[in-house]
Design a binder for these strands. Structure first.
Lengths: 240, 240
DNA sequence: TAAAAATATTTCGTATACAAAACACATATT
DNA sequence: AATATGTGTTTTGTATACGAAATATTTTTA
């Protein structure tokens, strides 16, 4: 299709009434399956099989996989096909460092430009997230948390930054899939309530400090210590 | 090819000895033509014509154009083909705002991690740029300036940020093509010398201030006032 | 039996064919 | 004359075919 709508380079509200072309629908389905952890890292994504299950030709699938690789969710190895990306420890740390830099440095603009409508939307998202947490629906809570961070930067009215943060947050889902500790430390029981308060008070400095700590908290809930599961340590495994 | 090497998602030195596949070579050629202003914004990029001139099938060209659209250099309109992107005024301002945010906020990491080797490389790049400016080779100076900014962020050792800044700098070239004022204000006669000095002294605060001012300077050398040439004002044009 | 070689099978990379949409131009209509 | 309609051409979207590389399987050999 070669259109760039499937790339979602423009921030838009969840206006699901808009028509999606065939490849955009397929993109969305695979995208969702990956960030929702239904497709685990390293899962092979063979063109033939996908083409068959979506009833399209490989041409379409190849385009979708290429788009997903630009999003960082899929890794394409020449001549050996696409797999769901498995972020390395280094990549995991880099993504959170990038998020800290972007999200903290954008807050002054956000606070300067935010209005009542956005603030209400953010409060709604935060309430939904708190409800999901109370209901133990971790996945929903994580998704809503991501939406909150995105909605926040949307108020900066900078499409380029929005687009970049969207990619970082997508990749964060993958990173949680790989490095999320089993005991689910579940950071931020209070969600983003405190941040909203600070933003309402136009407190740039404290907002930035909160955001920085918040992202460090999330990162701290991950376990970057274990060796990458991609290369199992056979020596240790079979030494007896 | 569906490989992601053509996307250049990993920072690497200008190691031109590495083998490029056919589509990567084509990508590079079109990429260079665009950022060097040999292909002006809005120039149509018909698949057939490109396929013929590169002696490949449209399949390859479509992949290259898709990659370029992810880079932001090409805009793909469904069913009506690809064109060299013409950044709007809003996009132009956004790109420089994003650059300010990224490059200023990354400086603490850069200063923390920089070593003698990178510093020497940066000094070389800066000297080359000054020489190019003295020789009135504006295009070369601009290219070297971009390489300097990229090399700088490379020292932060964050591939994701590097990748994003690379895209922003590519798009900056396009923005200069569209909004660069004819009298070439030529900012930063001293290049990046002062910044290197501040970095050597580990002066985070002053470095950040310098970088912010520097990017504002560059932006100020552009003329965002004129109406977008894409939609010529016919009424004004033919009113006589 | 285990490693190596040969063969078969799968999967990817690319060219090509054809349908459908967009475009350009000529003709008709008011 | 300006807009509208129709027709032919160009260009894009998608499926498919085929060669080539990678993977899996079998056979051979030590």
């Amino acid at each position: 299709m070669s259109n760039d709508t499937s790339v979602k380079s423009t921030p838009k509200k969840a206006d699901n009434t808009e028509k999606l072309t065939k490849d955009e629908k397929i993109y969305q389905q695979i995208y969702t399956a990956i960030v929702d952890h239904q497709l685990a890292p390293d899962t092979k994504l063979p063109e033939d099989a996908l083409a068959e299950s979506f009833n399209v030709s490989r041409t379409i699938i190849r385009k979708v996989l290429l788009d997903l690789s630009h999003e960082g969710l899929v890794t394409n190895a020449p001549k050996r096909g696409a797999r769901v990306s498995r972020p390395s420890i280094k990549e995991g740390k880099e993504v959170f460092e990038a998020r800290r830099i972007i999200e903290v440095a954008t807050l002054p603009v956000v606070i300067h430009k935010i209005n009542e409508v956005s603030l209400k939307l953010l409060k709604d998202l935060n309430n939904q997230q708190l409800a999901a947490q109370k209901a133990q629906d971790i996945k929903k809570a994580i998704r809503l948390s991501g939406e909150f961070h995105l909605e926040l930067i949307l108020t900066s009215e900078n499409d380029s930054l929005y687009d970049y943060l969207r990619k970082l947050i997508s990749r964060s889902s993958l990173i949680v899939a790989v490095f999320g500790s089993t005991q689910q430390h579940l950071p931020s029981c209070q969600g983003h309530s405190k941040l909203l308060e600070l933003i309402s008070q136009n407190d740039v400095e404290q907002s930035q400090k909160w955001m920085n700590d918040h992202l460090i908290d999330i990162e701290a809930s991950l376990d970057f210590s274990e060796p990458n599961k991609t290369n199992p340590d056979f020596k240790k495994l079979f030494s007896d």
